[in-house]
Lab assay of single mutants.
Amino acid sequence: SASLEDVKTAVLGLLVILQTKLYTLPASHATRVYEMLVSHIQLHYKHSYTLPIASSIRLQAFDFLLLLRADSLHRLGLPNKDGVVRFSPYCVCDYMEPERGSEKKTSGPLSPPTGPPGPAPAGPAVRLGSVPYSLLFRVLLQCLKQESDWKVLKLVLGRLPESLRYKVLIFTSPCSVDQLCSALCSMLSGPKTLERLRGAPEGF
C-alpha cells in the first residue's frame, strides 16, 4: 500500500504534465506521457489490482482522460474550469503507423480551432504528436469488463456518452463501437458483474 501511494503521486504528476505538454513542443512528450498513463491502467486490469488506493488511481486517471476532446481538424483539447475547450495546435487524435513515428509534419500553421486557440506554431513546419484515442478506448473496454470498484465504473459510464459525442475521437483511430456495445450488453446481462463490484448501489 505504501508503494502504491508513491505510484499514485507519480500518476497525478503525469496527469499534470500531460495537461501542460498537450499545448507545448515537442509534441512527442505529450504522446509519451499519454502512453505511460494508459499502459499503467492496463496493468491494473492485467494484474487485478483491487486495493482501494489502486481504485483511486484509476478513478483520477479516467476522470482526466475522459475529458479529452477533439475538433473537426482532429486536434485534441481539454475543457477549462468554465467548460470551454482549448484545442492544441500540436497534438492530434489520429492513429499513425509505428514506422512513421509518433509525430508527423505539417507544412505550416493550422487553421484556427473551433475553441480558444493555443499558442501559434513558431516555425514554418510543426511536428504534430499522435495521441490516438484507441489506446484509451481499449482500456475503457477492459474497465467495462473487469472493473471491481463501483465508483470507477460509475465515472466511466457517466463520462462515456459525452466523449462519444466527439465522433472524430472514435473514427480517426481503430476504435470498435461494436466491441463497446458488446461490453456494455455483457456488463448488464452477465451474472458476474454484481459479484465483482464493490460498493454498487442496492438494486443495481
Score class of each variant (00 low, 15 high):
S1Q: 10
L4C: 15
E5T: 07
D6T: 02
K8I: 04
K8E: 14
K8M: 11
L14M: 08
L18C: 04
L18T: 02
T20M: 06
T20W: 04
K21A: 04
T24I: 11
L25Y: 14
L25I: 13
A30S: 07
T31P: 09
R32K: 09
V33Y: 00
Y34S: 02
Y34E: 02
E35T: 11
V38N: 06
Q42P: 03
L43K: 12
L43Y: 08
Y45I: 00
H47A: 10
H47D: 13
S48A: 12
A54D: 01
I57C: 03
I57W: 00
R69H: 04
S72H: 10
R75S: 04
L76F: 03
L76W: 06
G77K: 02
P79T: 06
D82M: 10
G83A: 06
V84Q: 13
S88E: 02
C91M: 12
C91R: 03
Y95S: 10
E97T: 15
E99G: 13
E103P: 12
K105Y: 14
S107R: 12
S107Q: 14
G108H: 12
P109Q: 13
L110N: 10
S111G: 14
P112M: 09
P112E: 11
P113F: 15
T114E: 15
P116F: 12
A122T: 15
G129H: 15
G129R: 07
V131L: 14
Y133E: 03
S134P: 03
L136P: 04
R138C: 09
L140D: 00
L140T: 11
L141Q: 04
L141D: 02
Q142Y: 08
K145A: 11
K145T: 15
S148Q: 10
W150D: 00
K151W: 08
L157K: 00
R159W: 03
E162D: 10
S163F: 07
L164W: 01
Y166V: 06
K167V: 02
V168Q: 10
V168T: 15
I170G: 03
T172F: 03
P174D: 08
C175I: 04
C181S: 08
S182E: 13
S186G: 15
M187L: 13
S189K: 09
P191A: 10
P191H: 13
P191R: 12
K192F: 12
L194G: 06
E195G: 09
E195D: 15
L197Y: 07
R198M: 08
E202H: 12
